[in-house]
Every structure is written in structure tokens, then in C-alpha cells.
Nucleic acid binder design. Sequence first.
DNA 1: CGAATTACATAGGCAAACTATATAGGTGGA
DNA 2: TCCACCTATATAGTTTGCCTATGTAATTCG
Lengths: 149, 149
Amino acid sequence: MGVDQNPAAVGELFETVTVLMMRHVPAPDGLSLTAAATLGSLQRRGPRRITELATAQGVTQPSMTQLLRRLEDAGLVGRVPDPTDGRVVLIELTEAGDRTLRNRWSTRLARLDTLLATLSDEERAVLERAAEAALPVAQKLVHTLAARD
Amino acid sequence: MGVDQNPAAVGELFETVTVLMMRHVPAPDGLSLTAAATLGSLQRRGPRRITELATAQGVTQPSMTQLLRRLEDAGLVGRVPDPTDGRVVLIELTEAGDRTLRNRWSTRLARLDTLLATLSDEERAVLERAAEAALPVAQKLVHTLAARD
DNA sequence: CGAATTACATAGGCAAACTATATAGGTGGA
DNA sequence: TCCACCTATATAGTTTGCCTATGTAATTCG
């Protein structure tokens, strides 16, 4: 009992959470999902080449070139030539990009906290216990899928 | 103990889940989040006027007019004049729209299941138990926020 | 050394959002 | 009744972010 009563609970929860995060927890900057993920990748793993960033984010190389031009115009990333290969351009996160990313995360966390504050203490506790149990599994899933991120 | 070890577990889980759903569980159709949510609203609540749909989805009226024109061109929605008010256009879901929506949900569920199949039985069980606990709370949160959907 | 390959850029198109504004239909007061 | 105002939707023009097709410069290999 229990599990069979709602076999699609994972799917429904994931969909519900996605709607919540995409529609009700806005970011303070105008960064798209791809833009934020690209900056995050640069923050975690250091300078990368454009083609690498494109495949990591699942977009085409021209799309990534265009995105990076906007991010560069906004001062969030910089370009460095690759000393070992004249064709390659290495993209690195700037100070401003790092700050933007940290601010984005803390702002969204704060906004989510505001929403969670409308729940009862008990409901919040249920959510926190469930999140702690599910987080490692969900992270494993994403990291397996995004091995090249 | 436990809770304090990772106070941002809910935020991290929600972000991780969002990335998973947005980047790794694609829909079979090309519907945007707003398009799918609009069709879903029509499916659940029947014909609505354009302005109503726009405010429900948090977009402007011209954006909704444009979206509905594309959905109408694709045969997913139809237009009916309001007999009581000549200015009003009522939008209704077509048969094809209904089929598209059902197909979308079942396809995404199947794709998610494929991903979940890469986990161990134990990991999947952890996720399912967590989802069953968290789902009612998450749904309450979204329904409170999207009361006019 | 020249041909093929690789890395990135450019051009042009579509989707989906926005603001500002136009038009047609409805409503209310002098 | 009629005109002024309000409301519902449509149109125009801009921006972002994705796409495909193609161009150019650098590297590698036969």
C-alpha cells in the first residue's frame, strides 16, 4: 500500500516543482536557463571553449556564440585566446559574472523561503525531510545525465 | 540534527528537479511552458476569454493573442464569439488540442521513467516515498499561488 | 605542401515575450 | 438619444534566444 496508490507521484511532484520554480520564483537578473547554467558551469569548472559550452548545454555552437556575445556585452564573461591553438577562444567568468551568479542563487532562495513561509511548520518540515532524502538521488540523476556540463 | 545540516535542501532539490525536467525530459511537441499551461487551463476549466487566459498565465494580452493565433494555426484551439458581448472571443480546446495535451503528459512521464530506470531499486523507492510525502504540500503551494489559473 | 578537418563567426528565420497604440463593441449620463 | 468613456481584442515594432546553412581562419595529416 502507499506506493501503488500513486505510481506517478514522482512525475507529478517534478512537474509541480518545475511550474513553481519557473513561474513563481523569478530570478533578479534577466538570465535565461541556458545563460545561468553556462555561467554556473564556468564558475564550477573554470574557463572553457565555446564548442564545449554549447554541447554541455545542449544548444548549437552559433546559439552559444550569440549567448556569449550578450554575456560579454553585459560584462559577465571574458575571452582569452588559447596559446596552444589559434582557433580556440577560451571563455572565463568575470568578477561581475561571479557576483551575479551568487546574487541570483541567494535571491531565488530567499523568494522560495517567502513562499515556504506561507506553509505551516509541519508542512515545511515534511518538505524538508522529503528534500533531504530525495536530493542525493536527484543530484545523481542530473550529474549522470550532464556528465559533460 | 539532520535538518540543520542542509538548510537549503528544499531549494537545491527544487532547482535540481527543475533543471532535470527542463533539460532532460523534453516534450514531444514544441509547446512552450505557457502554451502547455494555457491548453491545460482550457482542458480543466473549459472555454475562456483571452484576457482571462493572459492574466492567468502572467503574460500580457497581446502575447496571449499571438500565442493563441499560433495554437489556432496548429489546430489546438478554436474561437467562438460570446453571444452576450460582441467584443469577447471565447477560446476553446479542440479535439486535437486535447489529444496533444494527453500525449504530452504520457510521453514526458515515460521519458522520466526511462531516466528513473537508471537508478537502483532502493534509490527509486527513496524518491517515490519522498515524492508522496512532498506532493500534497507542493501542490498546495502552487494552487495557492495560481488561484486564477 | 595542399586537402580535409576543426573552431568559431555571420546571415537569415521563427518563436515568444514586451510596450504602445488602434479599433470595435458596450455603457452611462446630460 | 447621443456622445464620451471604458473594455476586449488586434496590430505594429522591438528584443531575446533558439535554429539551419554557410563562411573564414587555423590546424593537421597524407
